[in-house]
């Protein structure tokens, strides 16, 4: 089944060729390089660390890449796409299906946390560490697609001091519990994030 596919080794080779540090690009859950995610998005790749021949070729075509030089030139552009609100959202939602195990409906918690740390490093959501900590402490189960996609909406619409949070607001229950957790632990005090409570 893996004929006609670029797998981990192939990706390492590709990285060498386009001079992106393979260490960064190698898929260790906690260290996914955003670039790879964006590339996968362009290629509509179904799974993390795998490009089929078809995905690879059509993806490069749509990016207008036909040589290594052009590939290298495109890299800064691809990184910059993450800054675009709409594209970020698409990439974010794409990431769920991309990162989850084949045949699973939900995303393993470890993978999800790795992806969030990566994505929200780009997007700047101050509560991301609290969120991940909360999930490990209280949830410790896989993440559903709905929770995944709603989290971005939550990060975007509810301010980091939770002032716009509405308990009746149809948020997934995990997010409701997160807010409860924040309040319980005094993370939000006087409308500010109290980061001393973050136990690393």
């Amino acid at each position: 089944p893996y004929v006609d596919m670029i797998l981990v080794d192939g990706i390492t080779l590709l990285c060498n060729d386009i001079q992106v540090d393979p260490q960064d690009i190698v898929m260790v859950t906690r260290n996914v390089e955003n670039f790879q995610l964006v590339l996968s998005w362009h290629m509509k790749a179904g799974t993390m660390c795998e490009f089929s021949k078809k995905e690879f070729i059509e993806g490069l075509q749509s990016l207008g890449i036909d040589s290594l030089e052009k590939f290298q030139e495109k890299i800064p552009y691809m990184r910059s796409e993450l800054k675009d609100e709409q594209k970020f959202r698409e990439i974010y939602n794409f990431a769920f299906g991309w990162a989850k195990e084949k045949g699973q409906k939900s995303l393993a918690l470890d993978t999800a946390i790795g992806m969030w740390q990566l994505l929200f490093a780009e997007k700047q959501w101050p509560l991301v560490d609290h969120w991940c900590q909360f999930l490990q402490a209280r949830h410790n189960k896989a993440i559903s697609r709905d929770t995944w996609s709603q989290l971005l909406e939550f990060a975007k619409t509810v301010g980091s001091n939770l002032s716009d949070y509405d308990a009746e607001g149809a948020w997934p229950y995990l997010i409701d519990e997160f807010v409860e957790y924040l309040n319980e632990n005094g993370v939000i005090q006087n409308g500010l994030i109290n980061d001393s409570s973050l136990k690393r």
Partner: peptide, 20 residues
């Protein structure tokens, strides 16, 4: 709410794209 989410996950329901 949990039941709704479970039904979303099992594709009985979906959230509207523009109004969550």
């Amino acid at each position: 709410k949990k039941r709704i989410e479970s039904l979303i996950e099992r594709d009985f329901l979906e959230r509207d794209d523009s109004d969550r």
